[in-house]
Nucleic acid binder design. Structure first.
Lengths: 361, 361
DNA sequence: TTGAAAGCGTTACCAT
DNA sequence: ATGGTAACGCTTTCAA
């Protein structure tokens, strides 16, 4: 019994042709078929033609599943995100997806909804599905879970959010510097009493943004009056702004992301504050949100699409080179000045950057 | 040589344990291990315990790849979308993903960027990867490509956008009705000269929205003065609005989606039109965009998240029932009245819906 | 209740 | 240059 007999003829319409079928059809062995299909080894041009003809004739479609089993590569990459509906992440997905597509990979999008349990479940699935690599943009994965991934031979890369203790490359923006830039800009406009609204400070990125912001303020001798934190979305932004303005007199607020800024902006407007006349609002991200609200948001801009694109580029590079490049790419944030910021209301800008002692209102 | 010998002991740290390892460890056969793992067949509670213990001891992780090869199921679903960065689709992805996750499936997000070539490439990949099902939300896939998918035994379902000639279920909103509602609303406000800006009319959904809109206008004896079409994004919205208002006196514009509406709104505001005082703007979708711009957008609302969720529910149902339910779910759109619409400016609303002569406001 | 063995569709190594 | 065949890790009869 020759190897070719191990399976019946592919006559059944529902049964997709395999390399056995095209081997039989073209009168060569499956090994040769495989070689032709993958351009591996050497083969006569005539053989090659025969095989290709059979492939077309039978409408052969390779099974990536079988390839992955035998060849150890799934050509798939998993992406762990907190929320695809957040324009920041949906833009990241676009960048990631474009790069992956152009290099032959597909991406499995995993929305964790900020839920670590769900994240853990996904990580397990991704391991089972033998992803060639995993992008983690949640910032909440326990380091030991990442280590397990590495042990399992899966390449991992972090995106935007650092994770302490994780020995993997990362592509991100300099959050501290971003916060610093924001504060400098507001201080130069004359603001002395500032507030901050941010994502949960359990996230390193949130802490860094606040850290840079606070540092610049302290340097200038101005006051970081109040810090609100703990949310991500528009609702949270409104809630935090309300809480912040209820007890504090600030002339400018820096928010940790665009969604929070939008919420804060809406609340301010509804509460009767003029932006930027009564209060300046400054955001972080530069998603489409910051461009479409009115007033448009001055913000610390990240190259979002590129972040996604570069991350995938590095990850795929690692996968194909077969090793983990312990690199760390930190992109510089940029100031994007729009309409939500301006000088503080009259009477509050009475101090210069140095002296610090103020007596506003 | 027994079957158990076919592979060496899993001593190598980098080598992940397989069912052979746990079979050896627990002193049973791989068949039994498989049964325990899948809860198939009957087994003694003691055997079961032994196996489970070994699973834990060795840190066994099933290979979905092998399962898919042998079991004919990949537990993966592909989703073809024109643009994940469009909030409409990113919300759909959330709904789809939530349902898929809760039922044990993962979703491969394929961004076609409105490019049919890219779409075709993705479809091929999805077939190779043996997706259990595919969701198509682009509305641009040639019907014969869909037929091929079906032939290959892959379940297909359309989402939001119909495709003529495709014999597959669909979950969508009644676009014609939506357009009709929009027109009725604007007409009742007193508008007699209306304009339309929409996605390319090659899309059935765009044609239907326009169709319903035009029909209601005609019924009322008012004028659909001008139709602009051909784009999807914010930029296109601005461009189309500019083109439309350059030569036509309309008091209200209906846009085919929220992105277009945002663009149109921006352009109007920048051109000095007051919205809704000088011109009313009405949109379609009810994405987050319509809630955050100012004025907020009155629109025909779709239950976006549910659209995604229900689609996946039906698809998975079909996959698990093993047959294609030729269903068609058409959800009703709803009017969501916000701030971008109002009565036409004085002097233009001089006709009532029926006779043509009234003096409202 | 449990086990042996035959696939599933590839790849890769080793002969020829 | 080509072909035979053993993996890859699992599911699934069919026997025992």
């Amino acid at each position: 019994m020759t190897e070719t007999d191990r399976r019946g003829v592919c006559s059944n319409a529902a049964m997709k042709p395999t390399i056995y079928d095209i081997a039989r059809e073209s009168g060569v062995s499956i090994a040769t078929v495989s070689n032709v299909l993958n351009n591996t080894g050497r083969m006569g041009p005539e053989t090659r033609r025969k095989v290709l003809r059979a492939v077309n004739a039978l409408g052969y479609q390779r099974s990536s599943i079988a390839t992955a089993l035998a060849g150890k590569k799934s050509w798939s990459i998993g992406a762990l995100l907190p929320d695809v509906n957040n324009p920041y992440f949906s833009e990241i997905v676009r960048g990631a997806e474009d790069e992956a597509f152009s290099r032959g990979y597909s991406v499995l999008v995993c929305n964790t909804d900020h839920d670590v349990e769900r994240e853990r479940a996904y990580l397990r699935t991704l391991r089972h599905k033998q992803m060639d690599g995993i992008v983690i943009a949640t910032g909440t994965t326990p380091a030991d879970q990442i280590a397990e991934l590495l042990t399992a031979g899966i390449h991992v890369i972090l995106l935007a959010r650092e994770i302490e203790g994780a020995q993997v490359p990362i592509v991100m923006v300099d959050n501290y510097q971003g916060g610093y830039l924001a504060a400098r800009f507001l201080l130069e406009l004359g603001h002395r009493n500032l507030g901050f609204i941010g994502e949960p400070l359990t996230l390193r990125s949130a802490r860094d943004r606040l850290g840079g912001f606070a540092a610049a303020i302290e340097e200038a001798g101005a006051a970081l009056q109040v810090v609100g934190e703990g949310g991500f979305g528009i609702e949270a932004g409104a809630r935090l702004a309300a809480g912040l303005l209820a007890h504090h007199r600030v002339t400018a607020i820096f928010t940790g992301n665009d969604q929070l800024a939008v919420g804060a902006l809406q609340w301010c407007l509804e509460a009767g504050f003029q932006v930027p006349h009564d209060i300046s609002l400054m955001s972080f991200d530069d998603t489409v949100f910051s461009r479409i609200v009115r007033p448009s948001l001055t913000c610390v801009a990240q190259p979002i699409y590129d972040l996604g694109r570069q991350t995938l580029g590095m990850l795929i590079g690692a996968i194909e080179a077969g090793e983990q490049p312990a690199r760390r790419v930190v992109l510089a944030p940029e100031l994007m000045i729009r309409d939500s910021t301006g000088p503080p209301p009259d009477g509050t800008a009475s101090n210069d950057l140095k002296s610090g002692g103020d007596s506003n209102e």
